[in-house]
Amino acid sequence: MKIVVDFDLCESNAICMQIAPDIFEVRDDDFLYVLNEEPGEEDRARVDECVQRCPKQAISVQG
């Protein structure tokens, strides 16, 4: 599974960071950083939740 963030859409609401802080981090510069772009299958449920909960629908998953 590969995480793709559309940074034109992302507004750093940081919902994803709350759900999966080991994968997504909004830093002091208020930009989102993806810490792990290819998490394992065990993380799929959490990543799916990030996709669902993103207010900007900026996150998608390939594979």
Binding site: E11, S12, N13, A14, I15, M17, Q18, V26, D28, D30
Partner: peptide, 8 residues
């Protein structure tokens, strides 16, 4: 206000 990281 413009502090998304802190709010979360």
């Amino acid at each position: 206000f413009n502090r998304p990281r802190h709010v979360m």
